[in-house]
């Protein structure tokens, strides 16, 4: 069975690599390329099992999406949230609100192995 995952990342290449890593272990991947699109998707679509959230986004920042939608909305209570950022201090600031913090550069293998462990057992 496929498990829904949402990648919120403005860099197309990184989004592509992350998507490939997740697909490889059985996730069904959706992609939102900026904060606005991500907001619409989060408000309207079904809650995914995993969100890979970039903190540095056009229009609406990852931090805002996290605090105003993901952490507020009951529907995301069971959703795993991994934030990705190049700024270690940003990672520290949001560290306790999310399941994992990944500091960029993020390796394909690293992401694949981590999410494989997080995938629900069938």
């Amino acid at each position: 069975m496929s498990i829904p995952a949402l990648i919120i990342e403005d860099d197309e290449d990184l989004a592509d690599i992350f998507a490939e890593a997740l697909r490889g272990i059985g996730y069904e991947v959706e992609h939102a390329a900026d904060g606005q699109k991500a907001k619409e998707r989060l408000l309207n679509g079904a809650p995914p099992h995993l969100i890979l959230l970039d903190m540095h986004l056009p229009h609406i920042s990852g931090g805002e999406l996290l605090t105003t939608i993901i952490k507020k909305d009951e529907r995301f209570a069971k959703t795993l949230v991994i934030i990705t950022t190049a700024d270690a201090r940003m990672g520290e600031a949001y560290g306790d609100q999310v399941d994992f913090v990944m500091i960029k550069p993020i390796s394909f293998v690293q992401l694949r192995d981590l999410t494989a462990r997080l995938r629900p057992k069938e």
């Binding site: 860099d11 290449d13 690599i17 190049a86 960029k104 550069p105 993020i106 390796s107 394909f108």
Partner: peptide
């Protein structure tokens, strides 16, 4: 960012 992509 691009280096991360190359690496990936």
């Amino acid at each position: 960012t691009p280096l991360n992509a190359i690496l990936g």
